[in-house]
């Protein structure tokens, strides 16, 4: 009688552990990304931690990493809340796509990023925010920029060089 009770408790313990393992291994965890914005002094960045959606059941790790990369780039280009002073991409600029090949992410921006008349402060600050944000992603150390799918030397009328992958060491 006593042995059967011990056996029952042991079986119950094993069952609880199995259920806990199953739940923990299939639970969706909320994600987050770190996004950088450039201060108007042109010299320093503001890091922000932003919540991202959780990995969905059945979603591969690679697909989820791809989503986080696109999400981070989009947040960097969108800029911080309006009450925060920071260098911002021209209004209307969107991230059309992000692909990752090895350690280089390619960020494809919409044509609104062309904004003739912007000075070095604007252009440098915009891309510094984007490159800092993308290289904060695990495994990414360089960012190639495309505009409407094309490689460009600089933006229209601008002078910041975009024809080669950018790294943090470029600043």
């Amino acid at each position: 009688m006593r042995n059967s009770r011990v056996f029952f408790l042991l079986a119950l313990l094993i069952a609880v552990a199995a259920i806990a393992w199953y739940i923990s291994s299939h639970r969706t965890s909320a994600g987050e990304v770190t996004v950088y914005y450039s201060k108007v002094d042109g010299q320093s960045e503001i890091p922000w931690t932003i919540s991202a959606r959780a990995q969905q059941p059945g979603e591969s790790a690679a697909a989820y990493a791809q989503y986080l990369a696109l999400y981070a780039a989009s947040q960097a280009v969108a800029g911080p809340p309006s009450d925060v002073t920071a260098i911002r991409f021209p209004a209307g600029t969107q991230v059309l796509s992000v692909t990752v090949d090895g350690t280089t992410a390619t960020v494809n921006l919409s044509p609104e990023v062309h904004h003739p008349g912007d000075g070095a402060l604007n252009e440098s600050g915009e891309f510094k925010a984007l490159i800092w944000t993308m290289t904060a992603r695990p495994g990414i150390d360089a960012v190639a920029v495309r505009v409407a799918g094309s490689k460009v030397a600089t933006l229209n009328g601008g002078s910041f060089e975009l024809d080669e992958p950018l790294r943090r060491s470029d600043w």
């Binding site: 042109g42 000075g119 070095a120 440098s124 030397a153 002078s159 910041f160 060089e161 470029d170 600043w171």
Partner: peptide
């Protein structure tokens, strides 16, 4: 004076000699 700033500006980068770009004022 906002000082000396490193920046990948095309004209400066592709000059084989010492080069600098002065943004004189806003």
């Amino acid at each position: 004076n906002n000082g000396v700033i490193k920046d990948k500006l095309y004209v400066v980068n592709h000059a084989v000699m010492p080069a600098a770009l002065v943004e004189t004022a806003y």
